[in-house]
Every structure is written in C-alpha cells, then in structure tokens.
Design a protein around this nucleic acid. Structure first.
Lengths: 207, 207
DNA sequence: AATATAATTGACCACATTGGTCAAATGTAA
DNA sequence: TTACATTTGACCAATGTGGTCAATTATATT
C-alpha cells in the first residue's frame, strides 16, 4: 500500500510524516486537514493521495510507524539482566525522557492518538493500543526478582505502587518543563528528584 | 448573561445542559454541533442562542456549572477533622466513585475539557483549570497530620507517593468497569482492593 | 376580549472547509 | 523521440457551520 512511499528519499518521507503527525496531534483525526498537511509538507494534494489511499490509511500508517520507532528504540536500550525492578525502572525512566527529547513530534502524535474520539477510527485504534500496552508491560516486567520485596506484603501490589509512583514522577516532571533538555537531564535536578523517590520506595518496600 | 436561562424551570435547564455536555464530551469543542445540541435538547436553534450569547459562552457556562456542582458536592462531604491522610483519602476515593455514579455526564464533559485542544478556548480553559486544580489540592491537604509518617523520609514525598497510588487505583478501577454501580461499591471488591493498597502504604510509610 | 409582552420557532444565510479526483505538466532515463 | 514515473493544483460535490430574525405561539395584564 505504501510501497511507493517507501521508495521516496528519506528526508522527504520525514517531511511528510512530520507534517501529518503535527496536524493530527494538534487537531485530532477528524479536524485534521489534509490541505494543511500538504502545505506544511510542501507537496501537492495529489501526491499525498498518490502515496496513501486516503486519510485513514495515512493515519494508521503513521500510528504503526510511531509505535515501531519508539518501541524498538526503547526496548533496544533496556538491560533485562537487571533484575532489580527499581533499578530497571530508573533506567527506563531516563530512556523515556531521552526518547521524548529525541522524538517530540512522535510523542505528541501518540499522546493525541491515545485520546482519539473520532468514531471512524476509535475502535480499531483502541484495540491496537490495548494490545501494544499489554505486550509492552509484559516485556518490561520479564524476570523481575520479587524476592527483593518485603515478604509481608503482596508483591503484585508492590509492583503497582512502584509503577504508579514512577508514572506520577513522570507527569510531575513533564508538567514542570515541557521538554527537558538533554543537558539538564544529565546532571540535573530531575535525576536527584527521581532518586529521592526511589530511595523511599526501596527503604519502605524492599527488605 | 445567562439570567434568562436561570429563569427556566429546572428540568428544561437540565435537558439543555445535558444535551450540550454530551455533545461537547463526545466530539470536543470545535466539532461539537449546536444543531445536534438543540435536537437532543428538544429545543429550537433560536432558543439556544436566546439563552447563550454564542457557542463559546455556552461552553464556559457549562464548565463553570460542572466545576461548581462537583466541587461543592465533593468538599461538602469531606470530614476535615480526619487528620490521618490515608483515612481521609479513603473517604475521598469513595466519594469520588459515588460522584461519578451520580453525575456521569458531568464527569465525561470535564474529562473531555481537560484534553481540549481547540485554539479558541484552550488558553482560557487551561488557566481556569490550573487554578481549580491548585486550589482543590490545597483544600484536600489542609491540616494533615504528618507526624504519623515515618520520620526518616521526606513527608512531602510520602504525600506524593500516596496521591499517585490512589490515582493509580482510581484509573485501574475505572479501566476495569466503566461505571461502578452503587451497590457493587457498597460491599464490593473495589473496596477490598483499595484497602489492600492502603494497608501496604500504612505499613510501609507510617511509623 | 383585547392588548402587550415574553417565549419560542425554524427556515434561511453566507461561508468555510472538507476529502478526494484527474487531466495535464514536468522530470527522468533509454 | 519515446516511454514511464513523478508531481501538480484547479476543481468538485457535498456537508455542515454558527448565528440571525421575522413570524408564530403562549402567557400575563388590563
């Protein structure tokens, strides 16, 4: 379907993908305008529909593309030999921040896709999404050493509390500054803050 | 501005408000159709614009209305003499579930408003929202007894972890079942699950 | 009953925008 | 010169928009 598109040279592909991602992220599926996309991308209307069958085809192509890029980069960096989930999470937290820096547009698009309401695509999108979430969570938790946890509490609940705390920190950090610069991250407050919480979790939930 | 509207009898007011809330929640501000609203509400187009200056006026009237209803009901039920934040949170969690049951449409509308992207209203909406969030959080935490916490960890971080865990439980519960029936709540698994997590938090974060 | 006032209607408008098409122009390679 | 692929953008029918306003209906006042 998009074989013609793949034959295009890389930068032009990126122009088109970026323009489309931005537009969809900004306005949502329904209100996103293909006219605006071609204008931003610097191509003609006809060309867009030469590459993609229609608006929906374009959207799902984008979705697959974004998921692929992010997941591959993300899981490619994770060290699954790290059995201590707090340390692994620390790593994943940093990787995520770096990825948000590397692919801001993709993240904007995926976030918007997650709250997409357009009837024409909602169902397909949701089922795709649930599958991805489920698979990803499973991957992230493979071979975690639960024997490190306190023995007097339910390990699955411990995991949940850790997850939610990390998510909370993520949101807090994102709210503070829209896009953390790579440098700030390297030697920054963010890391100290994260470690403050992790220390508490370790002190209270580990044995 | 909406003084004429307030003179209307209560049920008709509710018809209109409900119709509008549903439409905005479903389609977002931009794509929401005033035609659809009047049709659902069972009134004529002219009448809607007799009561509200324009689409935007209607939207912000709705927003204020929803916030008022929820916050008043919510904070009206909270016992601020309860200084133990875990117990107070337990109470608030249950109140929230009950409110979601009582005002499903309002919740849908407010959730949608929270991710609203329409350029015409986004800024005003965000600033309104931030203010409300800030004030509400402040209220929820008034006169909490932090001396109950373990003395070897930062109390503000303890609070954060508790908040995020409760939020996590909320989301988990909502994902499980779209709308928990009041009965299920009264004697249900939900409560047991909540208490399971609270017990852990108490065991690990309190002294 | 007659009048005045308020509530309510819905046909109508100008307009913006949409996703998608297609004949033609342009570029490329043999 | 031919053949093929890439790219254009004017064009379209369709849909739907927020909002208006003269007219109708209901209600209250005299």
């Amino acid at each position: 379907m998009a074989s013609k598109f793949l034959a295009l040279d890389h930068t032009k592909q990126q122009q088109i993908l970026n323009a489309a991602m931005k537009e969809f992220a900004l306005k949502g599926y329904k209100a996103a305008s293909t006219n605006q996309i071609v204008e931003t991308a610097g191509i003609s209307k006809g060309l867009l529909f030469h590459y993609f069958s229609n608006k929906q085809g374009l959207y799902f192509y984008l979705y697959d593309y974004c998921v692929d890029v992010i997941l591959e980069d993300f899981f490619g960096q994770i060290d699954f030999d790290q059995k201590d989930i707090l340390l692994r999470f620390r790593e994943m937290f940093l990787i995520k921040l770096r990825l948000m820096n590397k692919y801001p547009v993709i993240f904007d698009f995926l976030i918007a896709a997650n709250v997409e309401e357009a009837t024409e695509i909602k169902d397909k999108l949701n089922s795709l999404n649930q599958e991805i979430i489920r698979d990803s969570y499973l991957k992230m938790f493979t071979s975690v050493d639960e024997s490190l946890f306190r023995s007097d509490i339910d390990p699955s609940k411990v995991l949940d509390i850790i997850i939610w705390t990390i998510e909370g920190i993520s949101n807090k950090v994102q709210a503070q500054e829209n896009h953390i610069k790579a440098e700030e991250l390297r030697n920054g407050k963010t890391l100290q803050e994260l470690d403050g919480y992790l220390e508490i979790l370790r002190k209270t939930l580990y044995n």
